[in-house]
């Protein structure tokens, strides 16, 4: 079989793309060339990042890394609720708890969820001096989801939505004064405009690795097994590579003049308390399935 592969990331040197390349190479090798995947990088196929789930479900793409799936599989957003998951350990527990729900939700879209990888925690990068969360008051912070927006508003900041391509100039000129991202993610591109990094983990972002259901079922059982096993192995390797890169980037950004500020003791407890009613109202608004998913995660991480 010859598959079309796609990833939202357009940077060939990032851990995310390296991981996807590794998967295609290893699968081709393991299946003796029976399954070859032609991997296209982000933006080359003119398919928006937020349309990848649909592209895979409709069979336009057979295999993909998908970060922006929340329009198709909104229940996955439970994993990105601010302050619900605060470290690697909690992430592992929470993901394990909701994985069956995700598999089912992707299945409904005609998509097989094979695995995934996770970015390091999204922290707060600003152009102004920040020592704790109260310093967000009155500042314009770019957010990428309504949930992040709620977090910023909770601390009296202004949550701004802005196209990614406009972020660097907007930071330079003060249209926005901060972003939520990972050091090994957006800060790699925008770090030069961001003199301060408050190391406070607001939420995590994860990518799923998915395949079209019909294409997958048309594979021989051996090829299916090879693909599943490779993703199961390389996915966590990619997560680990990101964690290594996060440290490298932190050092690099610090050397370039960025001030890294450790999270203030007590900020996390205070923020979590503020977020609990939001999680609940978020789940209630979205329906019983979401309430069940939230409960699973909260039980898993004891919150």
């Amino acid at each position: 079989d010859s598959w079309t592969g796609y990833t939202y990331s357009s940077v060939s040197t990032t851990s995310a793309v390296k991981g996807m390349k590794k998967i295609t190479e290893q699968v081709e090798q393991k299946t003796g060339g029976d399954l070859s995947i032609d991997l296209h990088l982000g933006k080359t196929l003119q398919i928006s990042s937020s349309d990848i789930t649909q592209a895979v479900g409709d069979g336009i793409v057979d295999f993909a890394a998908d970060f922006f799936f929340s329009g198709n599989v909104p229940i996955g957003r439970v994993l990105s609720l601010p302050m619900l998951i605060e470290n690697d350990e909690e992430w592992a527990k929470a993901y394990k708890a909701v994985e069956p729900i995700l598999v089912k939700a992707f299945g409904k879209q005609g998509v097989i969820l094979l695995g995934g990888y996770r970015y390091p925690e999204q922290t707060i990068f600003t152009t102004f001096k920040i020592d704790d969360l109260t310093d967000l008051e009155g500042h314009k912070i770019r957010v990428t989801s309504p949930e992040q927006g709620h977090f910023i508003k909770e601390f009296k900041g202004a949550a701004i939505t802005l196209s990614g391509s406009e972020v660097p100039t907007s930071l330079e000129r003060g249209v926005i004064e901060g972003v939520l991202t990972a050091s090994a993610g957006g800060a790699k591109k925008w770090g030069e405009f961001l003199p301060y990094n408050y190391r406070f983990a607001v939420n995590y972002g994860n990518s799923v690795i998915i395949a079209n259901k019909d294409s997958f079922e048309a594979l021989s059982p051996d090829a299916q097994k090879a693909l599943r096993e490779t993703v199961a192995k390389v996915g966590p390797e990619t997560t680990a590579a990101f964690l290594v890169d996060e440290e490298v980037q932190k050092k690099k950004q610090s050397n370039a003049g960025m001030t890294l500020i450790a999270a203030k003791a007590g900020d996390a407890d205070m923020a979590r308390k503020k977020m609990i009613p939001f999680w609940e109202s978020w789940a209630k608004e979205n329906g019983p399935e979401y309430e069940a998913a939230l409960k699973l995660v909260r039980d898993a991480v004891n919150k």
Binding site: S10, V11, T13, K43, G164, S165, P168, T169, E172, K188, K189, E192, F193
Partner: peptide, 20 residues
């Protein structure tokens, strides 16, 4: 400002400010 430079920078991870 240049949209083309921003696109180039996103593909290559070069500094947008320097490019500008």
């Amino acid at each position: 400002p240049s949209i083309t430079m921003i696109i180039y920078a996103t593909f290559t991870e070069t500094s947008i400010a320097r490019l500008f």
